[in-house]
Amino acid sequence: MSNKFTKGLLRKIPWHINDSEVTPEAVFKDRRNIVKALGLGAVGASMPSAAQADIFDLFSKDKEKKNFVTQPLAFTKDTNYANDEIVTPYNKVTTHNNFYEFGTSKKAPAQNSQEFQVEPWSLVIDGEVERPITLGYDDFTKLMELEQRTYRMRCVEAWSMVIPWLGFPLATLLKRAGVTSKGKYVAFETLHDPEQMPGQKNRFLGGGIHYPYVEGLTIAEAMNDLTFMAVGLYGKSLPPQNGAPIRLVVPWKYGFKSIKSVVRIRVTSQRPPTSWNQLAANEYGFYANVNPGVDHPRWSQASERRIAEGGLFSAKRIPTLPFNGYGDQVADLYRGLDLRKNF
């Protein structure tokens, strides 16, 4: 079957964000008028709830959408870890997100997070370390040397993107803190702030996850050079829907491991609980390495829908690679481990 897939997607195109990708205000207003002209107000019961919310949104008196303001970031090194595959356009990377803290639909995070406060921020690195560290918002960009890394991102839901991240290896941070001999795992925690994160306040919006969201890695995984703390994408600081101001990126694991808006990194001696694994251990393992040979109980992981450029029908289904194509760098971490059992 797999030889029928489109191989590669090998075409390097220079990307840049231009303002035309952002919906101009005039179009936005036009859109409202179209919807008004259709007399959509009375549709009511026959409409899906999400669509209803949109309509109410459109009818609510000129509540202009405020966009979160991102900052340009400088970086010293630029490495492409994605074989020159086509980079997913900025507007798709920032409007198709899983971040249940801001709602469960793919577009909810971009819609509900634009007023998210990232300053001041405090990220604590503690636990089994010699020198606990607390980093503030400015420290991420001032104390750390930023580099750009283009990684594939494979969601457990069988879609994928290619994203140019800005940040630094997690190992740099952990080395500064000095992991002690008892440190065997690293536990991560997302901000818990129900006032700012509607999904944490309301079970219906939050999709039944126990908040705060937590994730974890083994210490060897955390020290691997690919394991990255991202503070930006596409040359600018992260927008909230992508995990501002700082998030984890582990490119050989399913996306849910790459925890967003991190406030705590704790080195531990025991394997920490992780959110999706707690919710459904038979569907989401602790390791969650990308593995085409182990299906999710409800869908195949053998292939993925690559979200690249173009409209609805331009996506491609491509075969999923073991470790998301990063086996050379990480397969050694799992030698002797049965990856079918430890999925």
Partner: peptide
């Protein structure tokens, strides 16, 4: 009308950058 709305929402990116799941759910 909801179908017209869906088409408009998809065309204007109101359904998100990658509206596939949105369309299936809708």
């Amino acid at each position: 009308v909801p179908i017209v709305y869906l088409v408009l929402a998809v065309m204007t990116d109101e359904a998100g950058g990658d509206p596939v799941q949105y369309i299936i759910h809708y």
